[in-house]
Amino acid sequence: MYTDSVLLESRSARSGVAHRVEVLDKVKALAFSTGRAQATTRDVADYFEVPVKTVEKLAERHREELESNGMTVLNGPDLQEFETDRMSVSNSEWPSYPQRRRRLTVFNRRAVLSVAMLLRDSAVAQRVRAYLLHAEESTHLRPAAHPGVEEVRRSAEQLRQTVRTLAAGYGALDRRVSSLEAAGAELGTVLQELGPLIGRLSERIARMDHRLVETERRTERTEQVVCATSQRVADLGAEMRALRGDLRGVMRALDVPPAPRHTDEKK
C-alpha cells in the first residue's frame, strides 16, 4: 500500500496511480481557461492555491515526468489558437497580440494529478493525495472483479471524462454565443442612433436627384431653343441672299447702275 511520503518520493508509485484523475474533482473543480481540457500554469496554481512560481519551479524540476503525463509546451500556431480560444471565453489579463509570450506550458488532467503528487506544501494537493490513497486502498480491499466488469468500469470512467470535457466545451460555446449576442445588441443600438441621420441623408440625396433631373430638362429645352434659333438665322440668311439676287435682277432690268461702294469697303 502506498503512503503520502511514498507518492512524494517515488516516481514509479506516482506512475502507478496517475490514471486516477477523477480524484481531482472530488476535492474541488478544476477550471480551464478555454473549452479545451488544458490548464495553464496559472490555472494549476489557482487550483492548488499556491503561487505561479511554485508550479513553474516544480515543472522545471520534474519536466520529463510531467511531459510523459501530458504537460505540453505550446508555441507557434498551436499557441496562437489556444490564445484565441482563451480570449473568446474570458476577460483575461493577458495583453493583446503581438505582445503575448512566445511559449506557454499547459497541463492535461493527468499532468495536474502528477503535480498534486509532487507538491508538498499545498493543502489542496494533500487532500488530493488523501483521496487518491483512499481510492487505491478501496481497490485493493475489494475482491477481484470479473474482467468484463472491470472493462465496463473503465468505459464508464472514460465516458464520465468525455462528458466533463464536453461540458467544458459547451460552457465555452455558451460564453461565445453570449458575447455575440452582446455585440449584436450593441450593433442594434448603434444602428438605431444612425437611423435618423441615414434618413436625413436619403432625403437630401433625393432632393439633389430631383434638382439634377430638373436641370437636365432645362438644359434640354435650352438646347432646343438654341437649335431653333440657329435654324431661323440660317433660313433668314438664305432669304436675304435670295432677296439680294432678286434686287440685282430688277436693277439690271431697269438699267440702274450699281451703287458705289464705300472707301472702307474697297479697302
Rank of each mutant, 00 (worst) to 15 (best):
M71F: 06
E60Y: 12
R153V: 10
R218F: 08
S178G: 10
D174P: 09
G188Y: 15
V250G: 06
E220L: 06
A182P: 10
R61N: 08
A18E: 03
S92V: 06
V44L: 06
R86T: 00
V177D: 04
T54N: 12
R63W: 02
W94S: 12
V233N: 02
L132R: 03
S33V: 04
T229R: 09
S12E: 15
R101W: 04
F107N: 01
R129T: 00
R211K: 11
P77T: 08
R100D: 09
E181G: 08
E93P: 00
A168G: 15
F107E: 01
E64Y: 11
M87E: 12
S96A: 09
R200P: 10
E157R: 02
D78G: 14
A59Q: 03
E239G: 13
Y131N: 04
G245P: 04
D121H: 09
A13D: 09
D255I: 00
G188Q: 10
E49G: 03
A228F: 00
A234T: 11
K267Y: 14
L187V: 12
K267N: 10
A130H: 02
R217K: 10
G184Q: 15
E49W: 01
R110H: 06
R221P: 03
V128N: 02
Q231R: 14
L180H: 14
V250K: 14
S5T: 05
A144M: 12
N91W: 01
T105H: 06
V128S: 06
G169K: 13
D78Q: 15
R176V: 10
V21T: 15
R175V: 05
Y170C: 15
Y170A: 11
A123E: 02
L159H: 03
L104A: 06
